[in-house]
């Protein structure tokens, strides 16, 4: 598991860890049932305090990404496919909204925007 944290970032370190592990789960890089390194091991590897990794794990657990078994450690929880899809769609919507807002700001028409989207979509595929 690769995690890169930045000490100069404005984002707190526990949030950086949270976001990166979440991303690894959502992209399927971490599979259901897979064990996470122990909080103390991760703290040592990242050279940060134990309470920081503890907080990141607690947040992940609260939001259903991982579960813990006392004495055994933390594991990736089963992800509801339907819910994940919905969540991802919501993220796409949010990003599109930003694009639309930017388009409106410079008076770009819907047709022009659609054209751009089609072009980018097919090009990428």
């Amino acid at each position: 598991m690769q995690i890169i944290i930045s000490n100069s970032s404005k984002e707190p370190i526990y949030e950086q860890i949270y976001a990166q592990i979440k991303k690894l789960i959502l992209t399927g890089e971490l599979q259901e049932g897979q064990a996470l390194p122990s909080m103390r091991q991760l703290a040592k590897d990242l050279e940060i305090s134990v309470i920081t990794t503890k907080r990141a794990y607690e947040e992940l657990e609260k939001n259903g990404f991982i579960y813990s078994i006392v004495g055994k450690g933390s594991f990736i929880a089963e992800q509801n496919k339907e819910m994940m899809r919905e969540r991802k769609i919501k993220v796409i919507e949010e990003n599109l909204l930003i694009a639309i807002q930017n388009a409106k700001e410079m008076n770009l028409s819907l047709a022009e925007l659609k054209e751009m989207l089609t072009l980018l979509y097919t090009e990428d595929a």
Binding site: P12, S49, I51
Partner: peptide, 23 residues
């Protein structure tokens, strides 16, 4: 302390100011 401390206990002039989680 940045890289290791979980809690910080701060004293000043013989008085305990606080003990808090670092974050």
């Amino acid at each position: 302390l940045d890289r290791i401390a979980d809690y910080i206990t701060f004293v000043h002039n013989g008085e305990h100011i606080f003990t808090k989680e670092f974050y």
